[in-house]
Amino acid sequence: MLYIECPWCGFRDDEEFHYGGEAHIQRPTDPNELNDEEFSEYLYLKSNPKGVILERWLHSRGCRRWFNVLRNTVTNEITEIYPIDTLPNSKEGTEYYGQNWRRKSSVEKTIKPREYK
């Protein structure tokens, strides 16, 4: 059982939350600019890391707000929780974000990078 600290409601069981999957996947602004292979990269391919993951959670049975979480998929340890429209602050979060394959993916090459606060 995950014990997740909602930034607004505090610690709750994972049963109260809805999993939003990998965070920071950028949607192509104009899908027509991409060929099928590139669009498939955005639509289907997953990072699915063993270790650090940046992911989105929705407190669906609570305040119904989204937020981002840095979790380790082996130990399930949560080390950072940060607002949905920002990038992680911690060293491992920043490193993971920078080194993730999506930063070099065709989708992120063709569009203006999203601006985070």
Binding site: M1, L2, D13, D14, E15, Y19, G21, N48, K50, I53, E55, T73, V74, T75, N76
Partner: peptide, 11 residues
């Protein structure tokens, strides 16, 4: 949620 932990949630 994604996990490699070989254990899941009790709920």
């Amino acid at each position: 949620y994604n996990s490699y932990a070989q254990r899941g949630s009790l709920n």
